[in-house]
Design a protein around this nucleic acid. Structure first.
Lengths: 306, 306
DNA sequence: ATTATTTCATAGATTTTTCTGATTACTAAA
DNA sequence: TTTAGTAATCAGAAAAATCTATGAAATAAT
């Protein structure tokens, strides 16, 4: 059975004439005759009662088969339409993963922008650790993830988004309150609070600030289940200082008066925020659109990487 | 788009593996790969995300297309099943036409027999004149008709059923009540009542009985809209005599005491009752089954023609 | 009766499609 | 780096679909 054959019998049922049906199907009459004969043989059923001169007659069973052929062709047509409709890579669901130390600061400005520029893209967001996001990405549960370099995995491609400097957050009564810029190595003398070990930001800070974890017991300074917001509140409470990514701090934050923000001494330690996707992911256009949109987000003090 | 291609993408979605899917479809891997590629090009949509080594991933739009492919294939399967189910020529509707002078006497015994021997055949009966039945048969509104010879039309085939003698019906106080057999030519002297001109039986009687219409005005003896039953009642009332086909009279009719039945003198005039169908009608088996069944009906005084 | 016409079936040639086996390109793992 | 596994590609063979031309059957016209 072939869709073509079904088209032929439907045409004959409409035209009541083999020749005209063949014309309507843009084939020669023998082609159509043979195709129908083949279908009749396959089904072992006579669909048409041929009588030369006079018009074709459809058998009772033939009518039933033709009715069903209509349904099959209709559903096939629907398949084409579904494909056509979903062809736009900027439509349908898009599952985006973002690491914990980026999501809360990027997404509030990104999501409204995306819903404006690509309204057909139904964004689904997941926040998690880099490792978890990567697994989901690899398995296809996510379409793209926003993470921080270094990130080099087989089968995964990445593109940088922006370079984000780190800053130091101090209680506003801290001894450094009048300093302009902090050299990273000075942190070694301080009570530095950091996120738990699942967060890549923790490792990046440790790498950037020599011996910063050398003073007190590491456990007391690590907030295993916490978030940057928790740490920020603890800084405000005077428990210690911390290092934050630049985008986590509003530029003109007057309401954060309990905390002083100090830049690192140049060259400031920083992280490269990037977007990653599977090498063979078919909707690359969606990725690039999201990347461009992110790069137009109003983010504080970051350097866009084109 | 091809049903085969749809089968291929469904197989790949089930096996998550081109090679295994190809095996399941009993084709080589390149065959399947190329077919899917062709479909993807036709739909202009990427259905699968290929990454060698690791498993195949179905794109979002691909999943929608595959779901629809399931539906198309299911409906195609249903088409096969419909054809399979309706394959039996002894099932489905069968529209049988019968002329007025046969139907009332044949059908009461035929229909129960047919429902017993071919229970799947849904019989639909129409009684009418020969000319009307023939038109319906030619147009396909009827599958077969039961008529009386002569009947020779292009594109129509016939088979005789039985030879039915004519008989004379007299009021039981008629002068001929003690005669054994009536020569046809004797009817010329009588008040003979006949059916209207649409009935072939009328012409057959006129042809068989020379000058039978010569006596009174023809109009007075012709019952234009009537039936054999009407005439029979008029015979009983003494209005005149008539000629009837043998099967219209019960063999042992004691309740017809108002009427005497006399055979014609041998060779009795008679009519050949036959069944007719379109030459190219595809369910000939049904025709022959009906013919055989008719020939086993308990009909009075007819001679079966094999 | 004969001829012409209409209509579907058939035959042979041709083109197109499909299929296969071998090979290649690519990836990931050992 | 090598090895193994996977899908894509290629070339040639097989199968199919299609076309043109012709044939057969049944009317309709002459």
């Amino acid at each position: 059975m072939t869709l073509t054959e079904l088209r032929y019998i439907v045409a004959v049922s409409q035209k009541n004439h083999f020749g005209k049906a063949a014309q309507a199907c843009f084939v020669s009459q023998p082609t159509l005759s043979i195709a129908i004969k083949k279908l009749e043989e396959e089904l072992d059923v006579r669909l048409f009662e041929r009588s030369s001169k006079n018009e074709i007659r459809i058998t009772e069973i033939g009518q039933q088969v033709i009715n069903q052929a209509y349904i099959v062709l209709q559903q096939a047509q629907l398949l084409s339409e579904i494909a056509q409709q979903g062809k736009d890579p900027l439509s349908g669901q898009f599952k985006l993963g973002v690491i914990y130390t980026i999501g809360p600061y990027l997404l509030p400005s990104l999501i409204p922008l995306l819903t404006k520029t690509v309204p057909n893209l139904k964004l689904i967001i997941e926040e998690n650790f880099t490792a978890t996001l990567f697994q989901s990405l690899k398995q296809g549960a996510l379409d793209a993830i926003i993470i921080s370099y270094p990130f080099d995995e087989p089968g995964i491609e990445t593109a940088p988004l922006y370079e984000e400097p780190f800053i130091v957050a101090l209680p506003n009564n801290h001894a450094w309150k009048d300093r302009d810029a902090i050299p990273p190595e000075d942190l070694a003398s301080q009570d530095l609070m950091l996120l738990g070990s699942g967060h890549c930001f923790r490792e990046q800070v440790i790498k950037a600030c020599p011996n910063c974890m050398s003073g007190n017991s590491e456990l007391t300074r690590t907030l295993e289940g916490g978030s940057l917001e928790t740490i920020r509140h603890m800084v405000a409470a005077g428990t210690g200082i911390t290092v934050l990514p630049r985008t986590s701090v509003m530029h003109d934050s007057k309401n954060e008066s309990m905390i002083d923000i100090k830049p690192f001494k140049s060259p400031s330690p920083s992280r490269t925020v990037a977007i990653a996707w599977r090498k063979h992911y078919p909707r690359k256009e969606a990725i690039f659109t999201i990347r461009n949109t992110i790069q137009t987000c109003p983010l504080n003090g970051v350097e866009i990487i084109h």
